[in-house]
Computed example of a mutant assay.
Amino acid sequence: MESILEVKSLQMHYMTSHGAVRAIDDISFNLFRGETLGLVGESGCGKTSLGTSLLRMPPPPGKYLGGEIILNGKNIIPLSEKEIRKNIRWRSISMVFQGAMNCLTPVFTIGKQMLETLNEHLSMPRKEAEDLISEYLQYVGLSKEVMHRYPHELSGGMKQRVVIASALFLKPSVVILDEPTTALDVIVQAQIINLLKRLKQQFNLSFIFITHDLALEAEIADRICVMYAGKIVELGSNEQIFGSQGPAHPYTQRLLNATPLLFRKTKQLEFIPGTPPDLIAPPKGCRFAPRCNKVFSRCYEEEPPLISLEEGHLCACWLHQQ
């Protein structure tokens, strides 16, 4: 399969007055053309920080300390902000941010906001630009009249569709979706997921789908990447994570045991005791060790590397490296 995005040893820390918060700490993975990579983990594990880092816009005081982001064969880390804005962001890689209402300016119409984004990247007559915007609004199931409405005149699902259309109309090859169904009711969630599946096939898109919902990832993702405390602890195909053998890492196992699943009978739902570590001063050894139910002495001394258990299945746990 063709790799469209490759991340190599990426480090992005938040440089605070109390020290460096290791939000993204030596992460490597790739994304293939036409696939959906699911990104899961607890709040604060670095999922959204990774998404914004891939877009070359980590929120202040975020700073890259190392690594590469190779998009379509080109490392985008050294590029200037001007080149990123003009040629990379939204044209090659775009993002649907969490909370559609926060992405839309309440005093501008939908059409004006989308037109502003379009004009930043492409030069075309206004009529042609409006036709393009209308076309993509129809792709996401909205009428062209939505262009003339303000955000407060739209429902939550309609606003989410507008944000998705805005992320697609410059035809990027990679789209990052940061919890696109949050705060939507169950029926609208299903509509948005079905819409994303259709658009993925129609435009041959590659998705990075960020969510807390493992059941949702099982439905939409081809591969699952599990993050904990700024690191990847497990990466595998949908079948390797959700299949009969189940996940390999104790953290993924406990996440799955805390999720009600309709297709299997479960015992009482479990929870993970304790809290995630302080990323300014993470613990020595495995970062999950203080909360792990399978911990042993080596876990507190050495950090486990991410190794291959079988083709396409990676895990960072000493249980599998005896």
Rank of each mutant, 00 (worst) to 15 (best):
L306F: 02
L255P: 06
V295W: 00
P273E: 13
I241H: 04
R291A: 07
S244M: 00
P305T: 04
P276A: 07
P247C: 13
K265D: 06
L255S: 05
Q245M: 15
I307A: 10
Y300W: 08
A281I: 12
L269R: 09
D278R: 12
G243H: 07
P276E: 07
A281G: 04
T275P: 04
L255K: 09
L235P: 06
I272P: 05
P282W: 09
I272E: 12
C292R: 11
K294F: 03
L261G: 05
E301G: 03
L269A: 06
E270G: 02
A258R: 05
I280L: 06
E303R: 14
L279I: 10
L261W: 08
E302P: 02
P283G: 08
Q245R: 15
L256W: 03
Q268R: 15
I272Y: 08
E302M: 02
A289G: 10
P283M: 11
S244D: 13
P304C: 01
L235G: 08
G236S: 06
L256H: 06
I272G: 06
T266H: 12
P276S: 00
L269P: 04
T275N: 15
P282Y: 04
G236T: 11
L306I: 01
I241C: 09
R291Y: 03
T266N: 14
P305G: 10
L262R: 12
H249I: 05
R287K: 09
Q253S: 06
V295F: 00
F242A: 13
F242H: 07
L269D: 10
K294H: 15
